[in-house]
Amino acid sequence: MPIYDQRYRRYEARNPLRELRFWPITREALKLVVARRAFLLLLVAAWIQFVARTIQVYVVTRFPDAGRVLPVDGRLFGEFLSGQLGFALLVSVFGGAGLIANDLRTGAILVYLSRPLTRVDYILGKLAALMSLNLFVTLAPALMLWIVAVSLAPEQFASLKLMWLPLAIVLHSLVISLAMGLMALAVSSLSKSARVAGLAFAGLFIGLEIARGVLRGMFRTPETGLISLQGNLHALGNALFGIQHRFFNQPWPLAALALVVMAALCLWVLRARVRAVEVVQ
């Protein structure tokens, strides 16, 4: 049968546009990323620290003397989230680098932007997908760990004194996920190759940290840490969980401000790069 003889059905219904227009973008991005077996393994591996910390909490609740070597208190969660930062980096590199770069390479950006979607919907959809993945390796295990700790040592963790812990966990996880997500997407929008974008993001993250180390060696002031994303995230976490750290000790308000500036820079890059028309001046 010739193709033009086949049926084409007109669609009369015109539903109002959905409120969360970005949701299909988030869902499909997650489906495509999670479909890779290696990435699933990475997500599973990100829970290894959770298992180790659970054992630590269990051992300390059974043998209180062990608490002198492996203290179990509010700082445990700050250190846990700091440890998860490495996985957040890997998730952002392997899960986030291609989110916009692939759309630029295959021309899919026009498929999105010629629909009833704004650029904000598009960026929000991609960011929500990457943040969900990052929250899966930060917020989810940290909250689970807190639940385990409350169950094993209710007298310690369910006390009013530590009631701020879940809030601090949520806040720090959100800051990590948002900062990593925005930076990964901004770098992704600068390339048409997911591989190049992934390497560039990892290089930027590690490079800024190396620069922080060099500047600290030269000037010996904690404020040098403000140029590093990792440094600022650590500093904020240390402030939230009451940790005194030898290296990441820049003042937390400045670290928060530096993160806001980095986020604004990423949004500026995204605004310039995510467009349907390349303007040639």
């Binding site: 546009l17 759309d103 390479r105 295959t106 899919a108 026009l110 009833p116 704004t118």
Partner: peptide
């Protein structure tokens, strides 16, 4: 958005979602 929902656009260059 109201205009685009009533339009179907087939761009000149390749366009598909990778994978």
């Amino acid at each position: 958005l109201d205009v685009r929902r009533r339009i179907g656009y087939m761009p000149e260059n390749d366009c598909h979602v990778a994978g």
